[in-house]
Amino acid sequence: MSPTAVLVSCAELPSGDGDDDVLLPALSSLGFSVSWAPWDSSFDFASADAVILRATWDYASRRSEFLSWCSSVPSLFNSGDVVRWNTDKSYLVELSDAGVAVVPTSLVPPGSEPAFPSSEFVVKPSVGAGSRGAARFAGGSDASEHVAALHTEGHTALIQPYQSSVDASGELALVYVGGIYSHAFTKGAMLGSTMDPSGLYLTEKLAPASPPADAVALAEDVLDAASALLGILRAELLYARVDLVRGVDGKPLLLELELTEPSLGFRQADPEAPVRFASAVRQQLA
């Protein structure tokens, strides 16, 4: 009997945004019976051999419900424990404390008073997806109103100095499957982009990329540190996307580590990338 793999989406995008379309034939070629299903549907996820989070982009407004669902799924990739840790961007502070080069990050929970940088900065919710709720401010601005709005919605605010390199070169995303590097792509600056018709994420300008050595070295450090914090092996992460930017000194910095439902840029990758992903799914089941 063929193993079953379910790519998990949301009601607004039941078959994802198209980037993962190549995974269906890749998984089928390696013996899987594969289908899509929204996470909050009546699908029997417990019956599947592999339940793979791919486009659950409505989770931010329903995080408690989503985490409860994740905990109920036996064969979820990435695991529920990983999802719980990764869906709150306070993990950036943990990685920084572990010695990883991270974009300087401060957290302002409800009831706390913010301190704003003297240079350009960004304020966003610590729990969020698709850059919703993120705003950019000029140096010296008082963003208390935006922080208060996030607090009113129950969010912890996250404040970071804006990295001007994003305006010229965007972000560099390095994709790993089964803990091993697969491919990379660039993402244009998202702040100021238009919202997708689904209302779940901002549109991005993507392009294939060959990551320089210092970016790869940092991405490796990020995955090692995250795995140590989570108490798992890197190989236990079916997928990971490491988003990097350049700091004012030109050195790479971690902007985000996406372990829950990131777009993996298959349309910007080489033709073998979907098969690498499918092979990594088989590895997880073994």
Rank of each mutant, 00 (worst) to 15 (best):
A215F: 11
G188D: 03
L255N: 12
P271A: 00
A235L: 05
V216Q: 12
T194H: 14
Y239L: 12
G188T: 01
V222C: 12
E261F: 01
H155F: 10
I180E: 15
E272R: 11
P161W: 00
P208W: 06
A235V: 10
I180Y: 04
Q268S: 14
P212C: 04
A225I: 00
L255E: 03
D270P: 10
L150S: 04
A217D: 14
F277D: 04
P211W: 00
M195E: 15
L257V: 03
A280E: 06
S169C: 08
A235P: 10
T203N: 15
D243Q: 04
Q268A: 12
S182T: 06
V177W: 05
A228D: 13
I180M: 08
E171T: 01
L206N: 15
D270Q: 13
L238K: 05
L150N: 05
R241P: 10
G231R: 05
D167R: 11
F277R: 11
K187I: 02
L255P: 03
R241I: 02
E261M: 00
K251D: 11
V147H: 13
D214P: 09
L218F: 02
A157E: 07
T194F: 13
A213D: 14
M195T: 15
E236A: 11
D196E: 12
T260G: 09
S263I: 00
L264T: 01
P274W: 01
D221P: 10
I159C: 11
A278F: 07
Y162Q: 06
L255G: 07
L174W: 07
A219T: 01
A273Q: 09
L253N: 03
M190W: 13
F266G: 06
A228V: 01
G179F: 04
A240P: 14
A207I: 00
M190V: 13
E256R: 08
S193E: 15
V248T: 15
A219E: 02
Y201I: 03
V216H: 14
M190D: 05
T194K: 13
K205T: 15
S227N: 08
L158R: 11
L264D: 01
L174P: 12
E261T: 01
E204R: 15
S165F: 03
L237A: 02
P161G: 00
S165M: 03
V166Q: 03
L200W: 07
S182A: 07
L206G: 03
S279V: 07
A149G: 14
A148W: 09
L202Y: 14
G178V: 01
R267I: 00
K205I: 12
L218E: 03
E256Q: 07
P212W: 00
G170Q: 00
S198M: 07
V177R: 09
I180Q: 15
E204A: 14
I232W: 06
S164M: 04
A217V: 02
D167S: 12
H151Y: 06
D243R: 08
L255A: 06
D270R: 12
S182P: 14
G154D: 04
